[in-house]
Nucleic acid binder design. Structure first.
Length: 422
RNA sequence: GUGAGCGUAGCUCAGCCCGGUUAGAGCACUUGGCUGUGGCCCAAGCGGUCGGGGGUUCAAAUCCCCUCGCUCACCCCA
């Protein structure tokens, strides 16, 4: 038997209800904050991702689904959403001067070893606010992210906040970090792990992500980015904090927070849910500013900020938090028919009822009354219609209320009117 | 890429350590008890290449080797 590919999953009907619920809640709120949906292709030219995410990042070096098409072009299944949205923004010439607020929703692909809360094909919903650098926008975007999760019923969310500065701050900071990690105080504490020695050359901030005990110890005393921020970045960060306070959104400053993508500048944030099983997979949403990306992709200098949330993790968090998913109540009917003649008549009636807007279940094979009622019971329908030879000859149908086990006859000609009253 | 755990009925698992009749249970499903009335109860039935291959043995779900798959964790990320 053919089985699903590793790291993929099927959303079965009982779970699809949960997905639909989140989709409904989210789309309303996103529109309320002024965002409009954008849909982009799942496949893109490979260079879009290598240029935006960064040549040396884990995503680009080992996690992308890349293949050559029939004409030998390098194609990649999107590993994240921002690059495609920016590409579409530039290609679609969306009003370049005004602030553009977009949201997207879709599957992303990363070739990773799957584990709890992490898949090779996974679903992200994200937003991008393009065209403004004012810190109030950062605060609004963060508020939106919090609002989305809180509206689902998730509590005790933790907002981790940092500023990773602009290119100027980072140049200064990288030098400081290199000096520190090469200094005698660090060397006496023991060597960095091999991965971190490479990181020291390419992107020293990434050392903060290391879980090696020895590296962790050296990190404690390392200089923070805050001390290296330029005056503009410092001011922007202070303003962001001020606006978050205005909105009563608590946050935790985390100077070690580094995002795994190269394009981030200034604001970086992550919303974690501590009750999540695995401590390393507890980020429900993450994002930040990317003020240089649009220019790097060939557009005009345009500041922007966005975030992405992982749907699988949100659903997982909802399970853990035991969130109640409201179910829309609708009148459902199971149509029981007995014998071939009655089945043919029922077959016509059922089709007519469905076209009129009723929710009607029915058996497809001639089974016993008992087994059909049992199925109706399993489906939890409120009512059952029973049509046998006796009813058919008298042009009536039995309407059974499954809740209190009462039933009455209804002339076939009045059926639709009677059902409408239920 | 690295490490650990697990693969037995549709599902959850027992049996394996200590090899030995036809490989079990619960749930689910079908039928009947109740000839045209669901849920509860009772009974019967259906359902298995014991993940796959090889080896040891008179004999393998059970012991050994290889392999595939899944899960969890590391790296990293949503």
């Amino acid at each position: 038997m053919i089985k699903r590919l590793r790291g993929t999953y099927d959303v079965l009907p009982q779970d699809a209800i949960k997905w639909q619920y989140v989709e409904d809640v989210f789309s309303v709120i996103l529109e309320r904050y002024g965002y409009r949906e954008i849909r982009t292709p799942v496949i893109e030219e490979t260079s879009l991702f290598t240029r935006s995410i960064g040549e040396t990042t884990d995503i680009v070096t080992k996690e992308m689904y890349t293949f050559l098409d029939q004409k030998g072009r390098s194609i990649t299944l999107r590993p994240e959403g921002t690059a495609s949205v920016v590409r579409a923004f530039l290609e679609g010439s969306i009003s370049p001067d005004a602030l553009t607020k977009l949201y997207y929703w879709g599957d992303m692909f990363r070739y990773d070893r799957p584990q709890k809360g992490r898949y090779r094909e996974f679903c992200q919903v994200g937003v991008e606010a393009i065209g403004s650098a004012i810190p109030a926008l950062d605060a609004e975007v963060i508020s939106l992210a919090m609002c989305l999760l809180e509206t689902l019923g998730l509590k005790d969310l933790k907002l981790n906040l940092n500023s990773v500065g602009c290119v100027d701050c980072r140049r200064v900071y990288y030098e400081k970090l290199k000096d520190y990690f090469n200094s005698s105080t660090v060397v006496t504490m023991g060597k960095l792990c091999p991965t971190c020695q490479k990181r020291l050359e390419k992107n020293p901030m990434r050392i903060f992500d290391c879980k090696e005990e020895n590296c962790q110890r050296t990190i404690e005393k390392a200089p923070t980015i805050a001390e290296s921020l330029c005056s503009n970045c410092t001011l922007a960060f202070e303003n962001l904090k001020k606006y978050l306070s205005l909105l009563d959104i608590p946050f935790v400053l985390n100077t070690r927070l580094v995002r795994g993508l190269d394009y981030y500048t200034r604001t970086a944030f992550e919303i974690t849910y501590e009750k999540m099983g695995s401590p390393q997979q507890n980020a429900l949403a993450a994002g930040g500013r990317y003020d240089n990306l649009i220019q790097e992709l060939g557009g005009p200098p345009t500041p922007a900020i966005g975030f992405a949330m992982g749907m699988e993790r949100i659903l997982l968090a909802m399970e853990i938090a035991k969130v109640n998913i409201p179910t829309g109540k609708k009148v459902e009917i199971y149509f029981v028919s007995l014998g071939e003649v009655a089945f043919q008549e029922a077959f016509k009636i059922i089709d007519r009822l469905r076209r009129k807007g009723f929710y009607v279940y029915a058996t497809t094979s001639g089974r016993s009354l008992k087994s059909q009622l049992r199925e109706a019971d399993r489906l939890c329908v409120g009512y059952t219609l029973i049509l046998g030879g006796d009813e058919l000859s008298r042009r009536v149908v039995m309407l059974r209320d499954m809740e209190n086990s009462t039933q009455r006859e209804i002339p076939l000609k009045d059926l639709e009117d009677e059902l409408a009253k239920l």
